[in-house]
């Protein structure tokens, strides 16, 4: 794995072991392993539970410093506990919504966790739910009648504070410019495109982490046989995202051992472009230099920081996102600095 630090290489090994995508590779030498760095990477990428699972599944687990093993066990316990609560919360809410005649589509988080060998080891965040335009108002009314307080976001979505996870209610399924060529939400093709475009959106902005890459890998494996590979390539092409998805598929094949079979293998040297984004900022770029301070500052400071980071991704964005990148730049500027509701944003 060219250009990667030994700790990063080991994290990928543990992830492949945890995800069941290992290649039967020989165990590396554990000598001189910087276990503190392994734990730090796992934490910043929000994959501590998966790293723990991979480590503990190795045929000959290495000796690990006590503070690192404590940290991994505690992180994985917290993750399992919280993820289980979120899964139950999401399941209960979706059932109530369907009983009320609504047709919610669960996105990302709890939905993609189902593709993991151990769903509870996938760190949970918010609960994202999509509704078609024609029933969006009814969905908001249901939430209000149920005691939630939906608050509008800058991109047309609504956020409801809840526990253990907040609810994000979305009128748009894809992080893409609207197009009649996009597949219907809820189909396997749509789910793959949604996850791919979500990763791209964040990679072109403040950043994206390994958790989202693992999500994509698990979705591709879980949906194997349920979608047509050539059809998927055509959908990516129609969305103007062939180059991006070639990179993403190559990355997942090389780093996580999942070959979606949508494209033939490409140039491995390009993978460093995505590595740099992932390892410079961690989960959604939260660990990038200066990002934490910006997120805790006032709204204008946060939005300015996001916009500047988006500008910093210009070469990557133009190469892999093209028109989507320019669209993000434009609508982010209008939506966050022009105070127009219903426009796109990178929070």
């Amino acid at each position: 794995m060219e250009g990667r630090r030994p700790s990063e290489i080991k994290v990928f090994l543990f992830l492949r072991t945890a995800l069941g995508t290992g290649r039967g590779e020989a165990a590396p030498s554990w000598e001189n392993t910087d276990w503190q760095e392994v734990a730090k990477i796992a934490r910043e990428q929000t994959v501590s539970a998966l790293v723990f699972a991979g480590l503990s599944s190795l045929p000959c687990p290495p000796d690990i410093p006590e503070d690192v093993s404590t940290s991994l066990m505690l992180d994985s316990g917290r993750t399992e506990h919280k993820s289980s609560l979120i899964a139950a919360q999401a399941s209960s809410l979706i059932e109530k919504m369907r009983s009320s005649g609504l047709s919610p589509i669960l996105m990302k988080g709890p939905a993609v966790a189902a593709y993991y060998p151990e769903p509870a080891f996938r760190a949970g965040g918010d609960i994202d739910i999509y509704f078609r335009e024609e029933e969006f108002s009814e969905a908001l009314k249901f939430l209000k009648d149920s005691g939630f307080n939906p608050e509008p976001g800058p991109d047309g979505s609504y956020v409801c504070k809840a526990s253990p996870a907040s609810l994000d209610i979305h009128p748009r399924y894809f992080d893409l410019r609207p197009s009649p060529l996009l597949p219907s939400p809820g189909s396997p093709e749509a789910e793959i495109l949604m996850l791919s475009s979500h990763i791209l959106k964040h990679a072109m902005g403040p950043g994206v982490g390994l958790r989202q890459i693992c999500d994509m890998a698990m979705a591709l494996r879980g949906l194997e046989g349920k979608y047509d590979k050539q059809g998927m390539a055509s959908i990516f092409k129609a969305a103007g995202l062939t180059r991006w998805n070639r990179l993403l598929c190559d990355y997942i094949r090389e780093r996580l051992g999942v070959d979606a079979g949508i494209y033939p293998a490409g140039n491995r040297r390009r993978l460093g472009r995505l590595d740099r984004i992932i390892f410079s900022g961690g989960n959604f770029g939260h660990f990038a230099k200066g990002r934490s301070k910006a997120l805790s500052d006032n709204s204008l400071s946060r939005k300015t920081d996001t916009f500047l980071r988006l500008l910093g991704r210009l070469p990557f964005g133009l190469r892999y996102g093209g028109r989507e990148y320019l669209s993000y730049l434009s609508t982010l500027a209008k939506g966050n600095f022009g105070a127009e509701p219903g426009t796109n944003s990178l929070r």
Binding site: L55, S56, P62, E66, S69, M73, L74, G77, R78, H81
Partner: peptide, 24 residues
């Protein structure tokens, strides 16, 4: 309760149902 084992060590984590602070 969640039990974990790693490198020969065992840890018991407790997440009380009443939402009070967890213990390990």
């Amino acid at each position: 309760c969640i039990l974990r084992e790693l490198s020969g060590r065992h840890m018991l984590m407790v997440y009380p149902e009443d939402g009070s602070e967890a213990y390990a």
